[in-house]
Computed example of a mutant assay.
Amino acid sequence: MPAISLPADLTTRPLRPSDTYAVWEVIAAQEKHDIGSVEIEEADLVAEWQRPSYDLAGSSIAVLDDDRIVAYAELMGGDRYDAAVLPSHRGRGIGTWLAAWIRDLARSRGSQVVGMPVPEGSDGDRLLTELGYFVRWTSWVLRLPQGATIEERPLPEGYALREATEADHEQAWHVIEDAFLEWSDREKSTFEDFAAEVWQRPGFEPWHLQVVTGPDGRIAGASFSTIAEEGRETYVAKIAVHREHRNRGLAQSLLVAAFGTGREHGAVSSCLSTDSRTGALSLYEKVGMVPDSVWVHRATNL
């Protein structure tokens, strides 16, 4: 891939924890331009950046026009990165430069492949296609139409659904992470990193983390949801059922509970995301959810 330099009037520096709002503005502007809505929340950045294992300064770069952040990139893990460029600053080679910067950083850390999600057909999708990136998987943001509900499914005998307590945190971590690792090729998040993104996330309330317990009293399934301040939407960020307790309707019960509790707290819509690795798209469509946007995870071998 040809070398490229940033325009001479732009400068760079590592990101700082105090940059969350400025970076949120860049991502929000990009999402609004690309898909017509804003999915990101500043709290998402705060939660990710406060993970104890994450070296923000060593894994990120901000591109500045004077003192304003107009683009950024960060290597979130061994093979996953995020990046965004303000629509007003596109067409100047910034995205191409950031992609090269990420490739060099990932390669220096021993990664064999690196990629990021982009809206299908967006400027970012076209850029990465031109750079030779391939699609590793496809993901969808699905929404429950306003006013619609998911039909409740009674829990099997011996099962119970409730808000998680602090005593449930470790079990919830194991259930969710172990389930995700059945299809996700990555290391298991530490308990401390999981905590930073769940109950230590800004605005966390007890109802955001709900669990289903089995006949033995142990956690059989769990869901973590948030509620956006803008648009008042419930977003189910994580939902999982232990493999020994599947095919009993537990996931549907957790969804009903998350969306229903969100409505009680002012949400007027509900959404979640899934990708082709999970095979769950048809399950969510069967309960009435509708794909709202399509994303592709484009990657390149290093």
Rank of each mutant, 00 (worst) to 15 (best):
L64T: 05
S122Y: 02
E229R: 07
I227M: 15
G110R: 01
R162K: 10
K238Q: 08
Y81K: 11
G147D: 14
R103A: 14
L64A: 10
R68E: 13
D79I: 08
S276Q: 02
R248W: 09
W173N: 05
Y54H: 07
V38Q: 10
E41N: 02
S111P: 02
H208D: 09
G158Y: 01
R51T: 04
G78S: 04
L86R: 07
P117K: 12
E41Q: 14
V70M: 07
A8V: 15
A164S: 07
K32R: 10
W140A: 00
E205P: 08
R218Y: 04
G158V: 06
G231Y: 15
G262A: 08
A257N: 03
Q112A: 15
E151I: 13
F134H: 06
Y21M: 07
G77S: 14
E264T: 13
R103S: 09
E229L: 08
R80Y: 11
L281T: 03
R263K: 14
E264V: 13
V287H: 00
A195Q: 08
Y159S: 00
T278A: 01
S273G: 13
R143L: 04
A172N: 00
T190W: 01
I102A: 04
V114W: 00
K188I: 05
P154H: 05
V113I: 12
L75P: 07
S18H: 04
T165V: 06
A280S: 08
S276M: 10
E163N: 08
Q112C: 13
L64C: 08
R232S: 13
W24H: 05
L144P: 00
I219M: 02
E264R: 12
M116G: 14
E197N: 10
V211A: 02
G36C: 00
D34Y: 02
Q171K: 01
